[in-house]
């Protein structure tokens, strides 16, 4: 099921198809993300960008095509056997995901949330996991919130904990699914600056976002999707500043394109 590829890209998606019932959400998608690359996926709601992101870590199982992350490749469609739960789990452990609604574990403290992956999945000793978790919390500027429950945190803090939780698995790839869409405007900046910091450290990332200015700043490639197909793809600045396609232009006209990053505060 897994094979080593000589390709240098970290993520490689070929001819990906996915339907929910009669609704074809992804139609023959191809995508490559270089090691250390940051790709932003933009597009109107219902364009399939979140489904595409979820196909990368197989939270959504595609109907056809193939997905490769690092050295692990899965093929789907006629004749292909669906991967079993253990294979899937092992694969997902190498990718980190951050959700729109944080999905923190409310019955655990912040520290326990971040320790959960290392302890349960990587079978790390509790003490080692705690050291790692505290380091990740410090990285997102929330070291002093370790013993609080998620319910006591602001939206921006919750999302930074969620990022720390994903990073604690020391993933090869980070996937962001509209990570700032559920936040109050004044809290967006602190989350974006954490993501930007990750980009500058060379983390391979795929970011589904509505923050066009942020995408322009942080992503090196930008993909505009609509109705399950890639309409336009290219260097982020080029696509945003000079879109070739009319559909891309129409979509981007809904946004202010100042190119400026929202102010970062709260992150040390």
């Amino acid at each position: 099921m897994s094979e080593t590829s000589k390709n240098t890209s970290k993520i490689e998606i070929r001819s990906l198809r996915k339907s929910f019932g009669s609704n074809e959400v992804l139609k023959n998608i191809n995508l490559d993300v270089a090691k250390g690359g940051v790709v932003a996926l933009i597009g109107p709601s219902g364009s399939g960008k979140s489904t595409l992101l979820r196909c990368i870590n197989l939270l959504v199982v595609p109907d056809g095509g193939s997905v490769r992350v690092g050295d692990t490749r899965f093929a789907f469609g006629d004749g292909a056997k669906l991967p079993d739960v253990t294979t899937l789990a092992r694969f997902r452990a190498t990718t980190g995901m951050v959700f729109q609604h944080f999905n923190l574990f409310p019955h655990m403290t912040t520290l326990q949330n971040v320790m959960e992956g290392p302890v349960t999945v990587r079978r790390m000793a509790k003490a080692d996991a705690e050291t790692l978790a505290r380091a990740q919390l410090a990285k997102v500027g929330l070291a002093e919130k370790a013993d609080q429950y998620p319910a006591t945190l602001s939206g921006g803090q919750k999302q930074r904990v969620a990022i720390a939780r994903a990073l604690a698995m020391e993933p090869d790839v980070m996937l962001f699914d509209e990570a700032t869409s559920a936040l109050d405007p004044e809290l967006v900046g602190e989350v974006l600056s954490v993501i930007q910091q990750l980009a500058s450290e060379g983390m391979t990332m795929v970011i589904v976002t509505h923050e066009i200015a942020f995408a322009r700043e942080v992503a090196d490639r930008l993909i505009f999707m609509r109705d399950g197909i890639v309409i336009e793809e290219g260097p982020a600045r080029q696509v945003i500043d000079n879109p070739r396609e009319a559909a891309t232009r129409a979509f981007l006209s809904h946004f202010h394109r100042t190119g400026a990053l929202p102010p970062a505060n709260a992150v040390s």
Binding site: N57, T86, R92, A93, T95, N103
Partner: peptide
């Protein structure tokens, strides 16, 4: 979202 977050961390069902 809770099960999805667990799955995304690499937990089995």
């Amino acid at each position: 979202g809770q099960s999805e977050a667990g799955a995304a961390l690499g937990m089995t069902p």
